[in-house]
Structures are given as C-alpha cells and as structure tokens.
C-alpha cells in the first residue's frame, strides 16, 4: 500500500511541476518537451489507477499525436524555432482565482470518505463492451464529431483563403 501511495505522490509532484514548467518556460520548444513529459506522467497515473487501456491511449494520443501536432504548429508559425515568448499576463487575478478554486475543491473533498478506496483491476474487454454496448452510441457520435472537425480544420488551412 505504502508503495502505491508513494508512487502516486511522486507522479502528482511530477505532473504539477511539468505542467507549471510547460507554461512558465520562455522557449516554446521547451514547452513542448515539458508537456510531453506531463502526458507521459499522467499515463503512468492511469496505469496506477488500474486503467491500462487509458494509459496506452494517453501515451498514443497525447504523448504521441498531440505533442507532434503542437510541435508542428510551433515549427510552422515561428521563423526561428527557439523563439522567446513574452508572458504578458492580465495581473494576479487569475492566480487568485486558481487559488480559490483549489480551496473550494479541497473544502468539498472533506465531504468524501477520507479512507482509501480499493481500486480493482478490470478486464479491458469490459471497457470495450461498455463503449460499444452503452446506452448511447458513444463511438459513433465521437466519430461524427471528429470527422466534422477534420473537415473544418481542412477548410481553415486551405490555400488561397485570405
């Protein structure tokens, strides 16, 4: 038990630190690196939470595809790939808001049981059954949304559109 809690703590610290570094660093390419680490870290947490399918998905989709996409975006929009980004904020307001939100969530969490919850392993086939035999056609809807988003993305980047 104590091992798993230690692992969770480590993963949590890494997640917070990488997320913050990703946003605070001045080099956009560094940002991409930190966010990739962040995604990988989260995937580890999913494995820890006995959700290996999601962990793999996280690795494939986020750490793989999304990171590459973001890197691609940075490459296309920057003349020099290592360019500094000025962090022009709108004051301490957002930080205060974020702090407040955190406080509320912590307060709300007191309502939950404080003792640990046993997390069971599960059969990944169960997840596929849930996905495909659920009440709503989840995957169908997802596919439709993704298709239309793809069409929209192509439309946006089309050549000759000024």
């Amino acid at each position: 038990m104590i091992l798993e809690e230690l692992a969770f703590l480590a993963i949590a610290v890494v997640a917070v630190v990488t997320a913050l570094l990703a946003l605070l660093t001045r080099e956009l390419v560094h940002t991409i690196i930190w966010i990739a680490l962040f995604f990988v870290d989260l995937s580890a947490l999913y494995f820890l939470l006995q959700a290996p399918f999601l962990g793999v998905l996280q690795l494939g989709v986020y750490a793989g595809a999304v990171t590459i996409l973001l890197l691609f975006g940075v490459m296309v929009t920057r003349k020099r790939i290592f360019s500094r980004e000025a962090a022009t904020g709108i004051g301490p307001g957002p930080i205060v808001l974020a702090g407040l939100t955190l406080t509320f969530l912590a307060l709300g969490s007191e309502e939950l049981p404080q003792n640990g919850v046993v997390v069971h392993a599960y059969d990944p086939t169960l997840l596929s059954q849930t996905l495909f035999n659920a009440d709503g056609p989840w995957l169908l809807l997802l596919g439709l949304v993704m298709l239309s988003a793809l069409a929209g993305a192509i439309y946006l980047v089309r050549e000759g559109r000024e």
Partner: peptide, 13 residues
C-alpha cells in the same frame, strides 16, 4: 489492487 484517498487525487486534479 491498490488504494488511494480521494482527497489526494482531487487535490491533484
């Protein structure tokens, strides 16, 4: 089999 307190996870998220 593993156990986590909800408070920690919620704090993280």
């Amino acid at each position: 089999m593993s156990a986590f307190s909800p408070a920690g996870l919620l704090a993280l998220s």
